[in-house]
């Protein structure tokens, strides 16, 4: 007789816990973690081990997600550094070429031919520069056009970097919320076990006195 309500409450617990992370608001595909307010009640309704298992799973999912986002952020930061270098190079080229008039000199450079091997190159004053756009395409631009294009790219990357950073801090919030929930459920469980140990048969009573007394 006793097994029947137990079973139904266990399956209910599963549903309820699974539904915990999927709060109504989802931020860029990241489900919101819900703060469990009344831990004694939640633990009483669902079994603590089940809650702990579910919450740790959720915590791990958040961690995994966070790892991906951090990788994403690192690659964006690298792209920004690259973009800045490119922009600097174009600006330098433009500056050196715009010293127009009779004192326009060739730009003398050493460029990297291969790892650690440099060759000398002379760049005659020019107002064109070629940008590698990717997908095996290179396009010739004037310096102004190139600068505009590169700056625009840079600000686009900066924007997605900002977005990623916001996602990461949002995610960390959810992770923390979940970990806090987890610790509290765990503590609640331990205390319940202790009072079972102390009071022997009257577990419920012990639980009531030690926890509901605020």
């Amino acid at each position: 007789m006793a097994s029947n309500p137990k079973e139904s409450s266990a399956s209910k617990a599963k549903e309820a816990v699974v539904s915990i992370p999927v709060g109504e608001s989802v931020h860029h595909g990241i489900p919101k973690a819900v703060f469990l307010d009344d831990i004694p009640k939640v633990v009483e309704e669902h079994s603590a081990p089940l809650l702990i298992e579910k919450l740790s799973q959720l915590s791990q999912r958040y961690r995994f997600f966070e790892e991906n986002l951090v990788k994403n952020r690192d690659s964006l930061e690298e792209k920004i550094a690259e973009g800045r270098r490119a922009l600097k190079a174009v600006q330098c080229l433009a500056k050196r070429s715009s010293n127009s008039g009779e004192n326009t000199k060739d730009i003398e450079t050493h460029f990297e031919l291969s790892d650690g091997i440099f060759a000398k190159a002379r760049i005659p004053a020019t107002n064109k520069v070629c940008l590698w756009l990717g997908a095996n395409v290179m396009v010739e631009y004037t310096h102004d056009e190139a600068t505009t294009l590169l700056s625009k790219n840079l600000s686009n990357i900066q924007m997605s970097l900002d977005e990623t950073n916001a996602d990461i801090s949002y995610l960390r919030d959810q992770l923390n919320t979940t970990d806090v929930n987890l610790s509290r459920v765990y503590n609640q469980h331990i205390q319940a076990m202790r009072s079972v140990g102390k009071n022997g048969r009257s577990a419920n009573q012990g639980k009531g006195t030690s926890l509901k007394a605020k």
Binding site: R85, A86, K88, A89, C92, R96, I107, E108, T109, H110, F111, E112, F118
Partner: peptide, 10 residues
């Protein structure tokens, strides 16, 4: 020689 990007410019 000053290094800009992958190039040293004189």
């Amino acid at each position: 020689h000053y290094n800009i990007g992958d190039v040293f410019i004189l």
